[in-house]
Design a protein around this nucleic acid. Structure first.
Length: 411
RNA sequence: CGGAGCGUGGUGUAACGGCUAACAUACCUGUUUUGGGUACAGGUGACUCCGGGUUCGAAUCCCGGCGCUCCGACCA
């Protein structure tokens, strides 16, 4: 993409109404736009990153056997009353509104009810199981206090997968595979090194749930990390019994602040029983479906990447989620030779399927460098009169700062 | 929802209760410059968040509202 075509611009100064690093940098670089507290629009650059993250998650969910759907954001009151989650006293962050006929509807903050209810139409027999269904959906949560930029919004994208099994044993097998898939997701988006499988409070059907916590000062959670085992325990469940259970010693653990980027949870029959999602087993006996839920917020993942991948000049995107692979900077000369060569190079790279952001703006070199640092694309190609004379281009790695020269004819 | 702070050109800031609300940046014109936001000249752009009040006079003081941020509680 030619940068002269990009409608967004960078800003020199951080907006005064943001303190969170992720929001500050993403707004300055033109990735997101703040609509109101806790609601951000994704601009061309930001959407490219979000879509990369979504793509990685989708691949891993498909590999797990997940089938993608898109449920509704508008939710039926009756279904939620069945599971006793409609009342504002029980769930305090509902966004509710009314239809023209006066009927109340809610904007979904999660989709266990909706999907469990939907699956009743399709699951009859043990032969219909297992099933794993997921979606990317906007969730609405009326947070009493939005904060931390895109890390905690009132409206945010969420990937939620739900698993349906005949019993706890088969569920557990899927759950373990999902755990591995999650670790792969965080690895692939560039958070692997700082992200820990974390034991957290379970529910009536399991001792623990598992969170995926990325160590960051921007986090809101406190976890106790066992570096060698690559696992952690959430402070909320840290006690002697849990430690003994997990075979951990308190003195081996280090306290860290972290961001919860994912969460997987055994639901058991919490939803299938009240909503009547059951199947007939081989003996013809009706049994409730055993469920699990698995969430990741792509927007929060994006914010967490920014929080953990920056330097004093701007963002440093991991290659897998960068909006473009290459940022081509043309430092124009008077004769126009650089512009002509850069145009050609841009066409060639694009034809090869390389995602290039081409800074073809008629501005000074310093401004191009500054913007490139801020936007944070992994590879910077600099073409100038100097390099063109030698038939070369300069390639600078955003993360390491290492500069190499390459012959133009090799590109 | 408790506590604190803040709302001034697009953005970031300044302005004792008193001149035509200032500066930087961004933007537009022209010249200049072309490897780290170059330099100069000219120009556009603000009912100082909204509504009341005090005062001869309010961006400034008071009351109410709305919005934003931070701390806490809550939460993916």
């Amino acid at each position: 993409m030619r940068q002269t075509q990009l409608f967004t611009r960078t800003r020199r100064e951080a907006p005064k109404d943001e303190v969170a690093k992720n929001a500050e940098l993403l707004i300055r670089a033109g990735f997101i736009y703040k609509e109101m507290a806790g609601a951000y629009a994704y601009l061309p650059l930001g959407l490219r990153v979000l879509n990369k993250i979504v793509g990685i998650i989708r691949e891993e969910m498909n590999a797990l056997g997940g089938q993608e759907v898109l449920l509704t954001a508008l939710q039926n009151r009756q279904v939620w009353e069945t599971t006793n989650r409609w009342s504002d006293e029980v769930v305090n962050n509902w966004f509710k509104t009314k239809l023209k006929n006066g009927a109340e509807v809610g904007l979904a903050f999660t989709h266990e009810e909706a999907l469990t209810n939907l699956m009743r139409d399709y699951i009859r027999s043990f032969r219909d199981l297992p099933a794993a269904v997921y979606q990317f959906q906007t969730k609405f949560r009326n947070e009493e206090r939005a904060k931390s930029g895109i890390m905690r919004g009132r409206e945010f994208l969420m990937k939620d997968l739900y698993s349906f099994n005949v019993d706890e044993i088969t569920h557990q097998a899927f759950y373990d595979r999902a755990k591995q898939a999650y670790l792969r997701v965080f690895d692939r988006v560039g958070l692997g090194g700082e992200t820990y499988l974390t034991f957290a409070s379970g529910g009536s059907f399991s001792k623990y749930s598992h969170e995926f916590q990325t160590v960051s000062e921007a986090g809101e959670d406190l976890i106790y990390v066992h570096e060698a085992k690559r696992i952690a325990v959430n402070k909320e469940v840290l006690n002697d019994e849990v430690l003994a259970n997990l075979g951990l010693k308190r003195e081996e653990l280090v306290e860290k602040k972290s961001v919860e980027v994912g969460n997987i949870f055994t639901l058991g029959t919490r939803f299938s029983e009240p909503l009547g999602l059951s199947y007939k087993d081989a003996a013809g006996v009706s049994k409730p479906v055993f469920m699990g839920s698995y969430g990741i917020g792509p927007g929060r993942v994006m914010g967490t990447i920014v929080e953990t991948h920056t330097d004093d000049k701007g963002i440093v995107w991991p290659e897998s989620v960068a909006p473009f692979a290459v940022h081509l900077l043309a430092l124009f000369d008077e004769a126009g030779a650089v512009k002509a060569a850069a145009d050609t190079l841009y066409e060639n790279l694009t034809k090869q399927g390389i995602e290039v952001l081409y800074d073809d703006r008629d501005v000074g070199a310093g401004e191009k460098f500054g913007d490139a640092d801020l936007i944070g694309i992994p590879k910077r190609y600099v073409l100038s009169a100097k390099t063109l004379q030698k038939g070369e281009i300069e390639i600078k790695d955003r993360a390491t700062g290492v500069v190499t020269m390459k012959a133009l004819s090799d590109l």
